[in-house]
Design a binder for these strands. Structure first.
Lengths: 187, 187
DNA sequence: CTGATTATTTGATTTTTCTCAAGGAGTATT
DNA sequence: AATACTCCTTGAGAAAAATCAAATAATCAG
């Protein structure tokens, strides 16, 4: 539970009782490698907070497994489109290794927002940060060569390089497995 | 002013007095084609709401003008990264035609959030929608060929095709002017 | 431990799209 | 109306990365 409270350090504006209320709604789960917490085609009803380990969002396109995002310790993840819109999502979310994760439902979160505006604010700030990150990803997809994209990932989130397979990283960086393999060979 | 109030129809949860407070802070400006409302290198301090006409966000990369986004009537826009992070932004925002636009400053918006939580909620919902749109854009950039990207834009936002130049659309869709021209020739 | 399955690497070829180059169409300027 | 501009189109060749194919390495199940 301290692990969860540590995550709040990024949000000093959240009041103490709001933190307590949030933590009391947060359900802690333990996952093994490969366990799915969300499935494509279902409405994603939870926001996840990685306390330990890592999660990966992915979907299938023409029978190929395509990675959408990685969430490492201290990061949030969900099938954002589905979570926001309440429509069936296209992503699966799995544990990449043994992980400890906090989850909170959409309904509980909305309820907390009613009584704790500072939590809604923190959620807003997280959304803003996710938006910025996505914008950066888009520009980076647009302008960098395959090699630059890989070097940039190595620079910004080196842990991913160690935790994910070549295929998972390749689909995340939008290149073929072969291309990534060749890039890695030449560094 | 009714134009602005119409824009609220998407947000039934905003209380009447919050709408009034928001509208009273909103500064209405008239723009001519080519007028800039934001400049790269400066901190973007305003959120814009297009009442009439259209705005375009763009930046320069190797002396080429790259379109980031278009905002048509009823849509919001800003240099999101800069607006959120309070750091100098990389985008310019210009009017693509004679336009009428509402603007509100970051400080005023934050102030309104203090007294009107339903406005912060509406802002959160807008952010969520922007996030989803960006996510779609990313996937679409990733998987569609140049021709599919163009057809998809024609389908989803045909007005842009008519308002923007070939060069502006090409950079937005991440292809060369020549490629777009060839695609258009073959439809 | 061993065969089987899966993941990664390496090579050859093909495809998509870009770049460079030149011509044409439309608009604005004088 | 002639000149200059800018924008758009078309063609030819080049480049980046994909696909197809095969070999090697790593992991897993019995």
């Amino acid at each position: 539970m301290e692990r969860i409270f540590n995550l709040f350090s990024r949000f000093p504006e959240i009041e103490e009782d709001a933190k307590t209320a949030f933590a009391s709604k947060l359900q802690l789960i333990e996952l093994d490698r490969g366990d799915l917490v969300e499935r494509a085609g279902e409405v994603c009803d939870h926001l996840y907070l990685v306390a330990e380990g890592s999660l990966r969002s992915f979907y299938f396109k023409d029978n190929k497994d395509i990675t959408v995002s990685f969430a490492l310790e201290g990061e949030f993840t969900t099938s954002m489109y589905s979570f926001i819109s309440r429509q069936p999502g296209y992503e699966n979310i799995e544990a990449m290794e043994s992980s400890a994760v906090g989850k909170i439902s959409y309904a509980e979160l909305k309820e907390l927002f009613e009584t704790h505006p500072t939590l809604e604010r923190a959620y807003r700030i997280i959304l803003e940060q996710y938006y910025i990150a996505l914008e950066e990803l888009l520009i980076f997809t647009k302008f960098k060569s395959a090699k630059e994209r890989y070097l940039s990932l190595m620079e910004s989130r080196p842990k991913i390089i160690h935790k994910a397979s070549v295929g998972q990283i390749a689909s995340y960086l939008d290149m073929s497995i072969e291309t990534l393999s060749r890039i890695r060979g030449k560094i």
